[in-house]
Simulated scan of single mutants.
Amino acid sequence: MSGPAVTITYCTQCHWLLRASWMASELLSTFGTELGAVTLVPGTGGVFRVDVDGEPAWNRKRDGGFPDAATLKKRVRDLAFPGRDLGHADRDGEASDQT
């Protein structure tokens, strides 16, 4: 594994597998082989957490709900690839999920 590892822990009781897999797909589309791994980890109790090499990028309970794709990509970028340009996702006023 050459790049940072992203772990998405999701609640199976809440049926958030689809959301977790979509977020994983978005991250892989953006960062591709720069990431060492994207791992989905089943959990319970309403958990939805995204960590980069063990550092929290998003926590549903702490951050209030779920991130949109652009927000999650920015947070992962800030932890894993500081200074990397995300194109239109970095421009003010853009809240598009299509990055």
Score class of each variant (00 low, 15 high):
Ala95Gln: 15
Ala89Tyr: 00
Gly64His: 12
Gly87Pro: 09
Thr71Gly: 10
Leu79Tyr: 01
Ala89Phe: 04
Pro42Thr: 05
Arg91Thr: 08
Thr99Asn: 09
Leu72Thr: 05
Gly3His: 03
Val50Asp: 13
Ser25Lys: 14
Leu17Gln: 15
Ala95Asp: 15
Pro42His: 06
Thr71Val: 07
Ala69Ile: 02
Arg49Asn: 07
Pro4Thr: 01
Thr39Trp: 06
Cys11Leu: 07
Gly45Asp: 11
Ser21Ala: 12
Glu34Ile: 00
Thr12Met: 11
Pro42Arg: 02
Met1Ser: 15
Phe81Val: 02
Met1Asp: 14
Trp22Thr: 10
Thr39Ser: 07
Gln13Asp: 11
Gly83Val: 03
Phe48His: 07
Lys74Cys: 06
Ser25Trp: 12
Thr30Asp: 08
Gly32His: 10
Leu40Lys: 09
Gly87Phe: 08
Val76Thr: 03
Glu34Val: 02
Phe31Asn: 12
Leu35Pro: 00
Gly83Lys: 06
Ala5Trp: 11
Leu28Ile: 09
Val47Asn: 00
Arg91Asp: 11
Val41Tyr: 03
Arg49His: 08
Gln98Ala: 11
Thr39Pro: 03
Tyr10Ile: 01
Trp22Asp: 15
Arg49Asp: 08
Ala5His: 15
Ile8Leu: 07
Gly93Leu: 04
Leu86Ala: 03
Phe66Arg: 09
Asp68Arg: 14
His15Asp: 14
Ala5Met: 07
Leu18Cys: 04
Arg84Pro: 10
Phe81Asn: 01
Asp53His: 01
Gly93Glu: 10
Phe81Pro: 03
Ala95Thr: 15
Gly32Phe: 09
Pro56Val: 05
Gln98Thr: 11
Thr12His: 10
Met1Cys: 11
Val50Lys: 05
Ser25Pro: 10
Asn59Val: 07
Ala89Ser: 04
Leu40His: 05
Cys14Glu: 12
Cys11His: 04
Glu55Gln: 14
Arg60Gly: 00
Arg62Asn: 14
Pro4Gly: 08
Asp51Phe: 00
His15Lys: 13
Tyr10Leu: 03
Asp53Thr: 01
Gly45Cys: 02
Gly36Tyr: 06
Gly43Met: 02
Leu17Pro: 05
Arg60Gln: 07
Leu35Cys: 02
Asp97Arg: 01
Val6Leu: 04
Thr7Asp: 15
Gly64Tyr: 03
Val76Glu: 13
Thr44Phe: 12
Glu94Ser: 14
Ala70Glu: 12
Ala24Met: 04
Val76Cys: 10
Arg77Glu: 01
His88Thr: 14
Leu86Ile: 04
Lys61Pro: 02
Ala80Phe: 00
Gly54Ser: 10
Glu26Ala: 13
Ala80Ile: 02
Asp63His: 04
Asp68Ser: 09
Trp58Leu: 10
Asp63Arg: 00
Ala24Val: 05
Leu35Ala: 02
Ser96Asp: 15
Leu35His: 01
Asn59His: 04
Asn59Thr: 11
Trp22Tyr: 13
Ala24Asp: 13
Lys73Ala: 12
Arg91Asn: 06
Ser96Leu: 08
Thr33Gly: 12
Ser21Gly: 06
Leu86Met: 05
Trp58His: 11
Thr33Pro: 11
Val38Asn: 01
Asp53Ala: 03
Arg62Lys: 13
Arg19Gln: 12
Glu26Met: 07
Val38Ala: 02
Asp90Gln: 08
Arg60Asp: 08
Ala95Ile: 13
Thr39Val: 13
Asp92Gly: 05
Met23His: 06
Asp51Glu: 15
Val41Glu: 14
Ser2His: 08
Ala5Phe: 06
Ala57Ile: 03
Leu17Cys: 07
Glu34Ser: 11
Ser21Pro: 04
Ala95Cys: 13
